[in-house]
Design a protein around this nucleic acid. Structure first.
Length: 598
RNA sequence: GGGGCAGUAGCUCAGUUUGGUUAGAGUGCCGGCCUGUCACGCCGGAGGUCGCGAGUUCGAGUCUCGUCUGCCCCGCCA
């Protein structure tokens, strides 16, 4: 209780009737009936109707007439139960109103560029430019409250299990692997640079070596890459690491956390067992390492049904290690040619040669461009493999690489959107396991770490495949997938310098190069590093899924646009010549602005 | 780096297909009326660099090219 308010705007009920109250908030709606004036006052907690009655004070009504939307007002008055016929069942405070006897304008407001109402959502550009007003909307306030609650839940759950929150530096050194770093010039050391961390990966491993056997951190991470609906240049991770554990304990911790999130934010029961799927299964059945298992429509390898029947293209692809992948589109046998063409274009843009429909013709035979080469019984077998019924449409793609699964997976999820296959009320969690340690990078002609280079291999597989086929070595990594989004990923790490050097060797980093770039970690690994592993949650994504939003910008108070701009603050921006000078920097003007060149 | 969609009144949009007189609607804003509204209602008014720049044309919101901004996707993101 302050001079500004005795109650919040979401608080008053019939039980408060006849109490004298003070409310402060923003004028949300003003209904001036000529005599009576109704004013809806809004704050973070809700809305309350205030009534100004000329029968009580003409003067007060005249004052109230001046008030405009989004002014900040303070009201004194009596709580009154509304007449039966005038109650508003849609408002929590709809059974009462406050009869004002005093009005004070705490702040007036220019005509606002947007109205903070939930049923009035302007363009995202406009919302970001006037974020302070956009954040007044009840929806945004609710999201940020949920975000806060989840943060507290995470901290409580992990602390209770003995995890210590330890902060790590934001000014660190650049590690050229992985994403591009944001770099920060050093004033005291001309020509030298800090980098903002892509994640606290090495620090948390070192904390394990130091004996903090259970660590977590709510931490900002920075990656200078292109952005998407669920990617921002700076984002928040729940970073977790533990020593003397294996995969099971990390997964258990992660599930405990998710259980709390489900119960807290979604108020739905947590699955008794989170299903698991191997990376290989995920790629073959869904064409992605983060399958959305809220709907079926799995991909089916049709190579065996279609190859070996004298059709050169299929046979050739098959011999080259490729094949045919099919997808069953329920109830769409009658779609037009242009519909199919549209989706064929979709897969072509993503690198496949084409998309063939398979469907029953009027005479009962199978229609398919391969029909003249491939016997009907084989087409029937393919259709059976796709579990196609008469009204269903099969879509088949051929390609010689693994890309066919990925693209068909993209097609699967695009069709799910288009045809409404997804039950939005469902929530599906899934562990993806058995990732390969490395994958072949065509362009650079070397192996890349699939997860990151500190991930432990399955050592027996290493011994078996290192020399002959390293891509068959599995790692001890795991990802947690929620409704087709990767919400967490982690691994058991390498805790031995010799092994770390071996893995660096496989991805083309010499021991010298490795110790140059990761000297501090390499050194730590020689001084009694315990076995350890961990996981990191993408917290923004987690909040996005928990609130049913489709963009992480909506769950971040001040996000950047897809071009990395902060429209509200105006970042990035130019700095003074003096600032640059002090940092030993000189601006190189883009061509055309120097006046020297043409 | 590539592709797609969008940009018209403060805001949300129509008009662009097929170039043609003075660019419309709703809402917000300003003024008037209105004593039970709750997206109050009714009457009137003001409000436009059709993102920006070139070009085609007798004439461009509309066609062409370039460019900027926002969103979505591919690549990228260990």
């Amino acid at each position: 209780m302050t001079v500004y308010r005795t109650h919040t705007c979401g608080e008053l009920r019939q039980s408060h009737a006849d109490e004298r109250v003070v409310l402060s908030g923003w004028a949300a709606r003003i209904r001036d009936l000529g005599g009576l004036i109704f004013l809806t006052v809004r704050d973070r907690y809700g809305r309350t109707q205030v009534v100004f009655d000329p029968d009580r004070s003409e003067e007060l009504v005249l004052e109230a007439k001046r008030v405009r939307q989004e002014w900040v007002v303070r009201i004194e008055g009596m709580v009154r139960t509304r007449p039966e016929q005038d109650r508003n069942a849609d408002m929590p405070t709809g059974d009462i109103e406050v009869v004002a006897d005093r009005l004070e304008v705490l702040a007036s407001c220019e005509t606002p560029p947007l109205l903070p109402e939930d049923d009035f959502v302007p363009s995202e550009e406009h919302r970001l430019r006037h974020r302070f007003l956009d954040l007044r909307r009840a929806r945004m306030q609710k999201i940020l409250v949920t975000r806060h609650n989840l943060l507290q839940t995470v901290r409580r759950v992990l602390s209770k299990q003995g995890f210590l929150e330890i902060e790590t530096p934001y000014l660190t050194r650049s590690t050229p692997e992985g994403a591009r770093d944001f770099i920060v010039p050093s004033r005291l050391h001309p020509g030298q640079w800090y980098a903002l961390p892509q994640s606290p990966q090495t620090y948390k491993q070192i904390l394990m070596v130091s004996g903090f056997d259970r660590y977590f951190q709510v931490v900002r991470c920075f990656r200078d890459e292109d952005f998407r609906a669920n990617r921002q240049p700076e984002f928040t991770q729940i970073d977790i690491e533990a020593a003397f554990v294996d995969e099971e304990q990390i997964r258990e911790t992660a599930e405990t956390l998710m259980k709390a999130v489900f119960e807290q934010a979604l108020e739905i029961p947590f699955p008794t067992a989170v299903p698991r799927m191997t990376y290989r299964d995920a790629m073959q059945r869904y064409g992605t390492d983060k399958p959305d298992t809220r709907y079926g429509q799995e991909l089916v390898d049709l190579t065996d049904h279609l190859a070996g029947h004298g059709f050169g293209v299929v046979d050739g692809i098959s011999k080259a290690g490729g094949g045919a992948v099919g997808l069953c589109v329920q109830g769409q046998a009658a779609v037009s040619r242009s519909w199919i063409k549209k989706w064929e274009e979709f897969v072509k843009q993503r690198g496949l040669g084409g998309l063939m429909p398979l469907r029953v013709q009027e005479d009962g035979s199978w229609a398919n461009p391969l029909g003249k080469f491939i016997p009907a019984e084989q087409l029937q077998k393919a259709a059976d493999a796709l579990q196609m019924g008469e009204d269903d449409l099969g879509l088949i793609a051929l390609d010689k690489g693994m890309r066919r699964f990925e693209v068909m997976g993209m097609l699967r999820s695009a069709l799910a959107q288009e045809l409404g296959w997804i039950d939005e009320s469902r929530h599906e969690l899934l562990w993806v396991t058995d990732f390969p340690l490395v994958e072949w990078n065509e362009e650079e002609e070397r192996y890349d770490a699939l997860h990151h280079p500190f991930t432990a291999p399955r050592y027996e597989e290493w011994e078996r495949w290192r020399e002959t086929d390293p891509s068959r070595i599995m790692s001890r990594a795991y990802d947690l997938v929620w409704n087709g989004h990767e919400v967490a990923g982690g691994s058991i790490r390498i805790h031995d310098r010799t092994w770390q050097e071996k893995v660096f060797g496989l991805i083309g980093l010499s021991p010298e190069e490795a110790s140059k770039r990761f000297s501090f970690l390499m050194e730590a690994l020689q001084y009694g590093a315990p076995p350890h592993g961990g996981i990191a949650f993408g917290f923004d994504r987690m909040v996005m899924l928990a609130t049913g939003e489709t963009s992480i910008r909506n769950v971040i108070a001040f996000p950047k646009t897809t071009a990395g701009m902060a429209l509200f603050e105006g970042a990035p921006g130019v700095v003074d010549e003096d600032q640059l000078h002090e940092l030993h920097l000189q601006e190189i003007k883009p061509k055309g602005e120097t006046g020297e060149n043409d």
